[in-house]
Design a protein around this nucleic acid. Structure first.
Length: 394
DNA sequence: GTTGAGCGT
């Protein structure tokens, strides 16, 4: 689910060092589990002769767990076969973060309100997509909160959530082709651990006809997916729009990575190519590929304060879309797009956007914030920017 | 002494 306030993932990621090669990932998991729910483990065993310098990333689902793990393991946990205790510290994602000032402030005011399930309200878009509004935190999200989780009838019929009109996809397999034409098949990474095929469908179907969607699952841990998946559209155009809208979307403490499946990249438009940089994007210019912040095209104004795409006008006018996204409302752009917002909306399901915009009530939360330039308290939009620190993707 | 890679039964 979408945690409190845009969790910076590396605050929940622990770097583990000094791991002897005799240790395998299962052992690491076993130890690390004692301190919280593990979202992901990356283990790089030492290949050198010494065999004592392996390391691992252990990502938890909350920063608190990471802290507990550091407290509990650093200089304390000695793996079998190791000569001394391992090291555990917060992961750094690339650049060396040195010196004073920082320290991750407990930027999370008071995140989790574990209480009644009545704090959730369920809404539906005009197209029937359900979404959920937390009356306490005023967050809106697509993911169904666990509290409301009504286990789908596994045995019964096809549990197509919320009448996704086309939704030819799903279990399919009907001996047929479940892929789209070249360039219409998307690779999605950084998928939250609990997502299923249906979550993928829910997120991608607003952009077009989803032929198939699968989240890769690992047989060893059936409850947890492998963090990536595939979505196939029946045409390149909706696929490209999905990339433009969803690549970099903040979900579950990560940034969704959406790109055309390997080998088909050249069939897509230039601006969604892996190395492509949005014209007028932010000055910084990330080198293409997997480093740095979220991919250029995915900058959300709400998060970074800057005007994404360099096109301040359309979005400023719309106000809401990116503010909404920043507050945890995915799809800020496609659903909330201002009627005249050309730069981005072209080719997107425009009619829908207009309808949503005028829908009475709209998305809870989405309409409140940026619309009149009122701005969210404590959430700098356009202009102010975040003080100093930026988010890191890992 | 140390910090990432993954592309469909």
């Amino acid at each position: 689910m979408i945690g409190g306030a845009a969790p910076q993932t590396n605050a929940a990621k622990v770097f583990l060092g000094s791991i002897p090669r005799t240790v395998n990932e299962g052992m690491i998991r076993e130890e690390a589990q004692k301190f919280g729910t593990i979202d992901n483990i990356f283990y790089k065993p030492d290949e050198g002769e010494s065999g004592e310098r392996g390391w691992a990333f252990v990502s938890y689902v909350s920063p608190e767990m990471a802290q507990a793990a550091i407290q509990g393991m650093d200089s304390k946990l000695t793996f079998p076969g190791a000569q001394r205790a391992c090291e555990a510290r917060l992961a750094n994602s690339g650049g060396k973060r040195m010196g004073g000032a920082t320290g991750y402030g407990p930027a999370v005011p008071n995140p989790v309100a574990k209480a009644a399930s009545s704090i959730w309200q369920t809404y539906h878009t005009p197209e029937g997509h359900p979404y959920y509004y937390n009356t306490k935190t005023q967050q809106t999200q697509w993911e169904k909160p666990p509290e409301l989780d009504a286990p789908p009838p596994v045995g019964g019929g096809v549990p197509m959530a919320g009448g996704l009109g086309a939704a030819a996809g799903g279990a399919g397999g009907a001996g047929g082709q479940t892929y789209g034409p070249p360039g219409a098949n998307l690779f999605v990474f950084h998928i939250p651990g609990e997502w299923t095929d249906q979550d993928l469908i829910q997120h991608f179907s607003p952009f077009g006809n989803v032929i198939s969607a699968r989240v890769q699952k690992s047989m060893e841990t059936p409850t947890r997916n492998r963090g990536f998946g595939f979505v196939s559209f029946d045409a390149v155009d909706p696929a490209a729009n999905a990339i433009r809208a969803l690549n970099g979307l903040a979900v579950g403490g990560k940034w969704l990575k959406v790109q055309i499946k390997k080998g088909e990249e050249q069939y897509g438009p230039a601006d969604v190519q892996p190395g492509a940089m949005k014209g007028g994007g932010r000055g910084g210019g990330m080198a293409g590929g997997g480093m740095g912040g979220p991919p250029g095209g995915a900058m959300r104004g709400g998060q970074f304060g800057g005007a994404p795409y360099g096109g301040a006008a359309p979005f400023a006018a719309g106000g809401t879309p990116y503010g909404a996204a920043g507050r945890g409302m995915p799809y800020g752009a496609p659903y909330g797009g201002a009627p005249g917002a050309t730069g981005y909306m072209q080719g997107a399901p425009g009619g829908a956007a207009a309808g949503y915009m005028g829908a009475p009530g709209g998305f809870p939360g989405a309409m409140n914030g940026g619309a009149a330039g009122a701005g969210q308290p404590g959430f700098a939009m356009g202009g102010g920017g975040m003080p100093g620190g930026r988010f890191s993707p890992y």
